[in-house]
Design a binder for these strands. Sequence first.
DNA 1: GGCCAGGACACCA
DNA 2: TGGTGTCATGGC
Length: 215
Amino acid sequence: MELTLFKLYLLMKNHLPTGHWWPAGSKLELIVGAILVQNTNWKNVEYSLANLKADTQFNRTKIIGLSLECLETLIRPSGFYKNKAKSILAITQWLDGFGEDYDAIARHYGDGLRRQLLALPGIGDETADVLMLYVFGQKAFISDKYAQRLLMKLGVADLKNYRETAKLIRLSEEFSVEDAKAFHGLIVDFGKEYLGRGGAWKPSFLDDKKLTLQR
DNA sequence: GGCCAGGACACCA
DNA sequence: TGGTGTCATGGC
């Protein structure tokens, strides 16, 4: 049976528990989490977020006030801490330049917002899309590893990297921003459950399903 | 004790 | 453009 992307989303929504997505108490906490989770288990990210919350309550001024060494220590549990600490400081300083007014940032950069995010250290294609979607409320498909594995299991061949996948996948008009957020959440929850490395199994509600990509 | 996780980036051909 | 090595911790 052939599926459109939106039908796949509805199917997953009906068959999987709805996750609370993205887990964060504030936009700044979400941004920091998005950096910390890069190639890292979320469990490890939680340790770092707890450390940061205890020290700064995710107050941007307090974060900026941390020394690089101190920040590195706080986020050490989530790995790659030197790169991530630099990135978090740079992004927080950038946000501070706008008084952490996210609407003002969106207005200021307009269509160039994603490009600006990519220009910040430690923000690549995937993290940029995460921020576009969850922080700035703009529709985006997050083509993380779980999404790529799921799509390949559904018969979409040859997904070599993020950009190639992103080029292939377009969220149709049927998707609202909230749908896009929920979709990514479902894919990650689903991925943790069924798409670990070597996990060749897929649940029965996806049996014999093939994904058709509209252009 | 080895493998892996919700990537980014520099460097190379 | 595309492939490869590096960055690093904690859980399983």
